[in-house]
Design a protein around this nucleic acid. Structure first.
Length: 469
RNA sequence: GGCGGCGUAGCCAAGUGGUAAGGCACGGGACUGCAAAUCCCUGAUCACCGGUUCGAAUCCGGUCGCCGCCUCCA
């Protein structure tokens, strides 16, 4: 029996996963910054975390999963300049920062649920953990890791010798001037804000009192403060997008390890690659705002998007296109249909017969979450007519605990029949013509309906229709 | 300029030393009055050049192309 192996960014290797506490895994996922809608690229990160969680559960582990919601302090630049994203959005729309955060948090949660993500145990907001963040900064200050400049309290990266290790940074070789608008007084470009002072004369919607004066926390502090609060000073896995490696996670590690005196603070770091659109990263700042509802508007159900994502490995950039999504949707529909066919088959599965296929599936999942291989095996089982229906059913349902494709659902989209009096009448009219062997008339009615986007399917139990895309 | 990743059939993509998963599309077949839906069958020597090896898509070197990070984004 193989063990669950995960690719650890920290060591750049696949490693056997061993939780700190036997039987219990603790996972923290870097969640959304809720100043704008979460697009389908963002969703990929949560779908990855969901794969991880399901794989851990399949190993029989209890999983405590925490996701943060960034609703303050995320500036438009990581160089500690620029505006706070929430404040900026509030100013632009005339709405309150809290209102904006609530709206996009709800949208994000709903979309995660629609693509089949299991709920997290804790969703924690940065604004509700200001005291914890201040406490963390105080600890760092007491240990001498901070310095104060006009703009705020900063972390002194020169005090942390391991700073460049995690992201394998070569700080002195990074392009000079790449950081635009650096903060005056910062001792090194990599130093980052822990507590930012509210600018004199500027009234922020979100600001709090602190030992250093009124202001707001730096973006990185929240993750350190909240993860430690809910998962303990030392926990198992921290996930996020690959873009977080050089700055956000590097800074989290610096402040956490210095404050806690633990190394490694988090044992396994896992990162998702980006989904590409038209040959480039899907990015809010490039005007890409494709959201799940946009896919739904084109007739794609959310789980078809999940199926699409499962087709590629999480550490591989995947190219999104509607053509590719269409292919995924079709494949998913057929898989559902095949699963439905064996759903009510009488009889029990023979354990001996199931075992080898079950092991192959587990091996795929255990090899750093190889979802594409796992999915391929599901297809293999689904269409293997040599395998009795009870065996197929048992395997597919078991596979679905990881895939999350709702293979147990009663009615796949393909088998759905819609109802509309006007259309039903014309379908009946065509059926009458067919019975009378007036095929010219029958075909004319079918063509007319097709022109309106209605597809007729003749089945042994009579005709049915559905709207085609 | 520095660092990292990728380049597998028309498309989305697994595989990382032993002779190319899976999905979709295309083509053929079954079924159908004809279609649709469904089912079955069918395709690639793995960007290019050179090297290591009994053997490479898989290792090494080089070339070309693409993507990401270094500056907000999962």
């Amino acid at each position: 029996m193989t063990a669950l192996r995960l690719y650890n960014t920290r060591t750049r290797r696949k490693e056997v996963f061993e939780p700190l506490e036997p039987g219990q895994a603790r996972v923290y996922t870097c969640g959304p910054t809720v100043y704008a809608p979460q697009h389908i690229g963002n969703l990929v990160a949560y779908l990855f975390a969901d794969q991880l969680k399901r794989a851990l559960l399949a190993e029989g582990l209890r999983v405590t999963h925490v996701i943060n919601i960034t609703d303050v302090g995320h500036l438009t630049s990581d160089a500690d300049t620029g505006e706070d994203k929430l404040e900026k959005q509030a100013a632009a729309t005339g709405r309150s920062a809290a209102e904006i955060a609530a709206q996009y948090t709800a949208q994000w949660k709903r979309d995660c649920e629609r693509v089949g993500c299991l709920e997290a145990d804790v969703y924690c907001k940065a604004t509700e953990h200001i005291a914890e963040q201040i406490e963390l900064v105080r600890t760092l200050e007491a240990k001498g890791y901070t310095y104060r400049i006009d703009d705020g309290i900063y972390f002194d990266t020169s005090r942390f010798p391991h700073y460049a290790e995690f992201a394998r940074l070569k700080l002195d070789e990074q392009k000079a001037g790449a950081r635009i608008g650096d903060v005056p007084g910062k001792r090194a470009p990599a130093d980052f804000g822990l507590w930012k002072f509210a600018s004199p004369g500027v009234k922020r919607q979100q600001e709090w009192d602190s030992p250093w004066g009124r202001g707001f926390p730096g973006w990185h502090v929240e993750c350190s403060a909240m993860s430690v609060k809910y998962l303990g000073a030392n926990f198992d896995i921290h996930t996020g997008g690959v873009d977080h490696i050089p700055v956000h996670h590097t800074n989290e590690i610096a402040q956490s390890e210095c404050a806690l005196g633990i190394h490694p603070w988090v044992r396994y770091w896992m990162h998702t690659e980006f989904m590409e659109l038209r040959g480039e990263k899907i990015s809010k700042s490039k005007g890409h705002t494709l959201v799940l509802d946009d896919l739904a508007a084109r007739g794609f159900e959310p789980l078809a998007f999940r199926y699409f994502v499962l087709q590629a490995h999480y550490r591989q950039q995947q190219t999104f296109s509607f053509e590719a999504l269409e292919a995924a949707a079709t494949g998913y529909g057929r898989l559902l249909l095949q699963a439905m066919e064996v759903r009510d088959a009488p009889g029990e599965a023979d354990p001996e017969r199931i075992a080898p296929l079950r092991e192959r599936f587990r091996d795929a999942v255990r090899d750093d979450l190889n979802a594409p291989q796992a999915l391929a095996l599901a297809h293999e089982v689904a269409r293997d007519s040599a395998l009795p229906a009870p065996e197929r059913r048992a395997l597919l349902l078991e596979f679905d605990a990881f895939l999350g494709l709702d293979l147990a659902r009663a009615v796949p989209r393909q088998a759905e029949s819609e109802s509309d009096p006007a259309i039903d009448a014309r379908v009946a009219e065509r059926e009458a013509a067919r019975t009378a062997r007036d095929f010219a008339r029958a075909d004319r009615i079918r063509d007319e309906l097709a022109a309106e986007g209605i597809a007729i399917e003749d089945t042994p139990s009579g005709p049915r229709w559905r709207r085609s895309r």
